[in-house]
Write a protein that binds this DNA or RNA. Structure first.
Lengths: 168, 168
DNA sequence: CTGAATCCTTAGTGATACTG
DNA sequence: CAGTATCACTAAGGATTCAG
């Protein structure tokens, strides 16, 4: 199997490859061994939870919520603060997203028996630990965003028929 | 602003923090400066494209498709090969997902004027370059998956009412 | 203040049939 | 072989109202 082409390409683009602790493998080797995702059942017994968690992270608010909490003092805020920081989110979605993240153990919820009630949410240790890989993704997106935008424009030029994606 | 708590927490979980090239900043500092995502308009002028691309990556097939191509020789395969590798995907979704990824410049499409027709898809340099950050996410998920599963079980125990998430 | 409950709209996805 | 077109279904998300 020819890995030369790949290694060369990544060497040009990602200079920090060799630094990762799992980085002795190329991503190609790494991915070759897991998560072929060919069958639904793989998701069931946890072989490929990637898609499941990615789709959660990919929902409309989870990541923004994590980032919002990350910026708060002690990574902690109450419901109304979060609502203020994310004006576009509906109350319904804020509640639901917080609930899902709490279920996954990324945030904790502390309720105070006061009146009026007060509830505080905080990134857990686990939630904090995802900030690092998340930063790498953000870095990648930032670094390649103009490339992507340009690529889209070129593509849309070549395919004048209506584009089904209404993004951008 | 107290970063001590944060630094301590990540030091325990993520030992490779200091290795990243952007790693002089803690993620907290990093995220503080960008992508507050408070208003929709931020998405428009590209301040916070994070959500947009994440939701694309978070769709049902994009990541699996990228990983599938990553495992192919020269990160290249034709339509029917991809269909075979992802038996659960419908033709419609395979076409659409490939199209979106091509539009974003992550894969390239080469069509051969033969009969019967043959079309080959390949990860572009850009597409290959996302494999590294993607691997970090996969690593994180793998490393913390049992924790998440456990957290969910505990949560569901405490909240016996029907859970709206049908995952797992 | 922090939700839960309800209703409603729409985007995402799949099944099927058809075509160059 | 590699798609497009059409239809139907589901789940995600938003608006609004109610409640502890």
């Amino acid at each position: 199997m020819k890995l030369d082409t790949y290694s060369q390409a990544t060497a040009e683009i990602n200079e920090n490859e060799a630094l990762k602790d799992a980085g002795e493998q190329t991503p190609k080797e790494f991915f070759a061994k897991k998560c072929d995702g060919s069958k639904k059942e793989d998701t069931k017994h946890g072989v490929c939870p990637l898609r499941e968690l990615l789709s959660r992270l990919g929902d409309k608010w989870s990541v923004l919520l994590i980032l919002t909490l990350a910026r708060m003092p002690k990574e902690r805020a109450r419901f109304s603060e979060l609502k203020r920081s994310l004006p576009d989110i509906s109350q319904r979605m804020l509640t639901a997203t917080l609930r899902n993240l709490e279920r996954d153990g990324l945030i904790s919820r502390e309720m105070f028996a006061e009146v009026p009630p007060r509830v505080e949410y905080q990134l857990t240790e686990l939630g904090v630990s995802i900030l690092n890989p998340m930063r790498d993704i953000v870095n990648w997106i930032e670094g390649n965003w103009t490339t992507i935008i340009t690529s889209r424009e070129v593509f849309d030029q070549k395919h004048p028929k209506e584009v089904e994606s209404e993004l951008q």
